[in-house]
Design a protein around this nucleic acid. Sequence first.
RNA 1: GGGCUCGUGGUGUAGCGGCCUAACAUGCCAGCCUGUCACGCUGGAGAUCGCCGGUUCGAAUCCGGUCGAGCCCGCCA
Length: 744
Amino acid sequence: MSRRRHRQRDPRAKCGAQDRFGLGSRLGDTRTGWPVRLGLQRLHRGAHGWRVGCRGCRGSRSQLPLGGRPDQRQLLPDGHSIGVVGAIWSPAGLPHPGGRRSDTMRGMSEPTRPSTAPDAAFSLATPYRDVTCGELRAEDVGREVSIAGWVHRRREHGGLIFIDLRDRYGLTQVVINEAEAREATAVADRLRNEFVVEVRGTVARRLAGSENSKLDTGEIEVRAVSIEILNEAETPPFYINEPDAPVDESLRLRYRYLDIRRRPMLERLLLRSQLVTAIRDAHRRAGFIEIETPILLKSTPEGARDFIVPSRLQPGSVYALPQSPQQLKQLLMVAGMDRYFQIARCFRDEDLRGDRQPEFTQLDLEMSFVTEERVMDFVEAMIVEVSRAVVPDRPIQKLPFPRIDYHEAMERYGSDKPDIRFEMELADLAAALGEGSTGFHVFDDALAAGGRVKAIAAPGMADASRHQIDELVAFVRRYGGKGLAHVSVAADGTAHSPIAKFLGDDRIAAIVKAADAKPGDLILIVADAEHERVADVLGRLRQELGLRLGLADQNVLAYCWVYHFPMYQWDAPLFRWDATHNPFSGVVPEDEKLLVTESGDPYKPSRNDPAGKARAMQYDVALNGWELGGGSVRIHKRELLERSFALQGYSLEKMHDLFGGMLEAFDYGAPPHGGIAMGIDRWTALFAYQTNIREVMAFPKTQSGTDLMMGAPSEPEPEQYSELGLKFVGLEPAGGGAGGERSE
RNA sequence: GGGCUCGUGGUGUAGCGGCCUAACAUGCCAGCCUGUCACGCUGGAGAUCGCCGGUUCGAAUCCGGUCGAGCCCGCCA
């Protein structure tokens, strides 16, 4: 059984991006909708043979032994297309042990396509239906079927009533003819949108000329013999049958179960399911095992705020929900699991954003006996495989992914998650401004204080209006920039700038050159005594302009790595070094000697310690300007871990209180290990052309952390307080109620 | 903790000091219609403009507060 192409009228199809995201590309005809890949050019190391099968339906697989080499692709008379669908690995084998990177890529690049269609062995028929609303075709004409679903729309023509019946799988037109089915007509008269009904009838070809090419089931209709109302429905609070009708989001959240009936949410949840399926498949094939870790954990003070769960059995004590399974996955490496992964729910009690929810999902993985390169190689190959499987139509900008040193990323893009879909890189103007005073005190002051003057050239913005410039200045100030100087390069190549009278023409010309500005460009200059601020402000400006000016191809997936982050960041008020990412991150071997203090006492860190220069074996993966994931190779030796923790301001005692179990475990033979965590919500959102992860979550929370559907959070019952030995303090006397301040 | 935006029949919007006894589209209800598929036609019901207070002869419209939602800064190892 092949579940065929499901395409519907979708007004968003006018938008190329949305069209590409349409179901058609993924739920495509399993025989023809799947783009043919020319697959493996040669067998990579570690593989035991080719896996051969129908590239379309993935059925009838056979295996060829090592050495055998099937033709790329062969079409069989029955329509199956035989070709290489993958490689056979030794049991749970490593796809490319020690393989070169190119081998890695090739080895993992054959996607196993996740499908939401069930296998033939698992019928969707139930006592209420023989078929779903998406599967009847011309060849089914004459069948007597029972079909169930929601009333999508009703069209009445006197004695003739049409019902579009909807379920997850599609839309099928039911016709009720008063002359043929008097009782069914009486029932159909009562039907309203979203009623749940079961229809019995005969599949018939539609009258010539009345086929609907917008529907997969458009060649046929079900002529109703009888209709049973399984459940009536209130008129919904918003349109379910108009996918592009705007609806206030809080209303959608309050009635999320109705929102999910709508096509766009359904599509996104399907996409998410496919993503997770592809992830699981890629990991299984690479020898990873999926292990669940506890949700009730021990609270640690660092990082984000913990969600706290009071313990009834241990009154006065609390569990914490995991911010990530970080320590547990490292313990699994100590436990010898070698390769672990998990689709893990994580919790952080921090303020929300469009890309941040209090609970979210990570792909969490860890590998033993690895180096940074080894982890990045695998993760990259996995990402490529998953991307090609889930969004096969979207090109990946560059393979292998660019690997950019942290400092280089900050220099060139002003961001540790650069959007490399467009250029507009940051240019340093120090050399162009020359020695001595520039004549413009803003620049002079910045440079004299050891700061920077940097610029970007915004293409085509030379004749920006005063209003536009003001807007950019406001933007810059929002992120702590003091101001924004600009030089516009006219079409004839001449440069104009309000600051030309200070700098002089020579310096302006040098700036144009340094910024690599073309005629028509607008050079935007930020100066600050703190070079981090210059990078941050210009980086944000670059990202903003890249999107506003349409420089970024919405369809491209531009993955890149940023690696060798600084190990620590000085925390002035607390007088200690904070781990920039993960307190367990390892230090780059040649920087290990830097993990010392000026004072000589490891427990007395100070601002000028060599540790400030140490680089971590830390890598982030960015996608189109979003931080998609981050990880590191960890410290696996207790001595070094203690030294690092000492710099981070932990006394030996505190260390043992907080990480005692972990440190003890490291005494029992911890292998070198490293891993990464990736944001599943963000990944899905980017795949779905969304900028808000709520759009890819079934039941998200509002920006104030409430669930508008369930009414969470809510005040506990008095018995719950007493059982837990809790007492709320500081709530307003009456009507404080839900959503009040947290109390421990 | 802070800044900005929004809140008008079921839904989406218009109205932004008197012309509003609040408009439009859609939905809803009723009637007609035997080939529609965003069916069509006719008629009808439905909001006092989130809430509280103020300014004014007069407030949906201005001001203050409050509640809710969104975006952002801080925060998020």
